[in-house]
Design a protein around this nucleic acid. Structure first.
Lengths: 359, 359
DNA sequence: TCCAAGACTTTGAACGTTCTGATAGTCTTG
DNA sequence: CAAGACTATCAGAACGTTCAAAGTCTTGGA
């Protein structure tokens, strides 16, 4: 194994100068720097991460918890997020370490072991639950971290001590609903989660805001809302059932907004004769088929692409970059404050897919 | 930060004895061991991973590449695999590090940087392409690794130098097809990828084997095979189209076997009136509806659960455990041989979902 | 001519662990 | 009882880097 001292010997300088070339090249004269770089290349020197960590006290490693599987994943695009985070971290000379996450308690036990091994510099926490003990624990134990997702149970956050990055579900839902209105839709239903959690309420409010802004006036029933359990496993089926019920009450529906692609597929299937895929030359529905119902989803996952319905796309690359930026700053010792730079809300973008043109 | 020497001082022993308690407790007398353990607890000592790595030369870290996103993921259950791997590694005192993977060349550049930093002990490589340069590179550069997935381009493997774990697609497809035969299906079609890659051929052969074994005799056309591009993005749509074509030629089809859940959904939609979700009181199809067509998939992903069709489930926990076991052995210095223990093929299990009972 | 300041480089220590070899002390054996 | 083998422990070196401080050389102003 070739060390910094071998390089120094070849370049005819001291080991420290080599170290300087690697860490603070600007303080080394150009001539020496070039000579050393040549020696580095010649010998194929690669810095030893372990030694670096031991001495400098930080590991440049970010820990990320991963949920058991597709079922309990906070979102169907979590794998995409992981990729983006790994890439963003890599650009910053950092690495992402995976830990298998189960429940809150187990997570905390894990944090405990991570913390003191000087193994991990910071933790990215995602998929927060509404009453989540983890941020509090991390704060108390002075473990650096950043959240993907707002801490909806705000109490803690009074001092603005918790850095987070999130995607503005409200805005996304509002935009895609506005888009439906622009497309001439006049009876736009909502099929989604019971608005008891932060995320659920946020998205529901987005749809409502768009309708209010357009001065929709649904007489007695301003809008219909169907609710069901949060079970992701059953989202599709639940979406289907809820949509069917909604149709019965409002046969004139011409669009349905959903807060997830899974639900959207359910809604799509409930109105299957009217969509791209399920139009099976069924003459009886021709009147409605002329103007097929539009269902929209959220996340722009593979489902949205496959079934070709409009959806809201999260800017995961920006989220990842921002998380890494925050962590970099925190590691540098910058204090987290109430300033907006520690609480970033990214606007998602609407990915429109015109059902008609796809025909 | 509390070190091994602090513990030693409190326990009244030398630092080396503390080290022994941690690494080879059996050579320390029980009395001393207890005393030291008490001191460890008292001081809240946690070993410093960086120092350990520097001295011992290994990091106990396994690197895993992750593809850009849902689109290019080798399988829809990759996130589940990651979780299992992280868990299995954790049980063995190891960690999983993520690296963002793009194409083969870029991957190799990355390996290069990983390799010499004494940052990573071994690499788990998955989603191999048919002509994949990576295993060869890793072998040549003496970077330890193990594959999830067989190296289909076998040349290299002559010496059995490549350790791998895989799931037996052939067996899975055969079993699920047999299950269809047991269920009384007599016209079982196949809609899948063009059998040009290893995986595609493997799965196709499984279906064929089951039919052959049952002495199916499809007169002129023994079986129908529809092919299309491998684009995952378009799998569902392609599956739909191919299935529609197949129906035209074989109106008497009563089952379709697919090598992926995505394709299965396409096939399902093509026969939508006949399925659980799309039965929209359409009297005209009652004769067929009495005995709805069964579509089967592969991976038992969320799609299979949502749409409630039978699928083949991969034992990812076993795969992960086995990969970690292999890596542990390799790190111990055990040479990879031709013995079956270095090339494990796990049998997947059929997850049956009876369309009728779901009605 | 001298000194201070600046630019660059060097020296030695330190990070916390494991490895190597050595030292007592105890047990076996003939 | 002495020699050898084994047990339990210890002391110092080493891993490869960065930190802290000091050293050398050049430059320019007094």
């Amino acid at each position: 194994m070739v060390s910094i001292r071998d390089v120094a010997k070849v370049a005819g300088v001291s080991h420290q100068t080599v170290s300087n070339v690697l860490n603070t090249p600007e303080i080394v004269s150009e001539a020496t720097r070039e000579r050393i770089n040549k020696a580095i290349k010649l010998l194929g020197y690669k810095p030893n991460a372990a030694a670096r960590r031991l001495r400098s006290g930080h590991s440049d490693v970010i820990a990320l918890g991963i949920a058991p599987g597709s079922d309990h994943a906070p979102s169907p695009i979590f794998d995409s997020f992981m990729h983006q985070l790994a890439a963003a971290a890599g650009n910053d000379g950092k690495k992402v370490m995976l830990y298998a996450k189960t429940d809150q308690e187990h997570d905390i036990a894990l944090f405990e072991s991570l913390q003191e091994q000087s193994d991990v510099d910071a933790i990215v926490l995602s998929g927060l639950e509404d009453q989540d003990a983890r941020p509090k624990w991390l704060l108390e134990h002075q473990q650096l971290f950043a959240l993907f997702g707002r801490p909806w149970n705000i109490e803690l956050d009074q001092a603005g001590q918790i850095p987070w990055v999130d995607v503005d579900g409200f805005s996304g839902m509002k935009e895609i609903t506005k888009r439906l209105i622009e497309a001439g839709r006049t009876h736009i239903g909502y099929v989604g989660w019971e608005p008891s959690t932060g995320v659920a309420t946020d998205r529901y409010d987005g749809w409502k805001a768009a309708l209010d802004e357009a001065h929709f006036d649904y007489a007695a029933n301003p809008y219909e809302l169907e609710t069901w359990t949060e079970s992701v496993e059953e989202e599709l089926g639940a979406g289907l059932d809820a949509t069917a019920t909604l149709y019965e009450r409002h046969p004139d529906l011409d669009a349905i907004v959903c807060p997830s692609d899974n639900i959207a597929v359910g809604a799509l299937l409930a109105s299957s004769r009217l969509t791209k895929y399920a139009v099976v030359d069924d003459a009886r529905n021709s009147t409605i088929a002329d103007r097929p119902i539009i269902v929209t989803g959220f996340d722009n996952s593979r489902l949205a692409r496959s079934f070709a319905f409009p959806s809201v796309s999260q800017p995961l690359d920006q989220v990842a970059d921002e998380l890494v930026r925050m962590i970099r700053e925190i590691l540098k010792g910058v204090k987290v404050t109430n300033e907006p730079r520690w609480h970033r809300l990214f606007k998602p973008s609407v990915v429109w897919r015109d059902v008609a043109t796809h025909e």
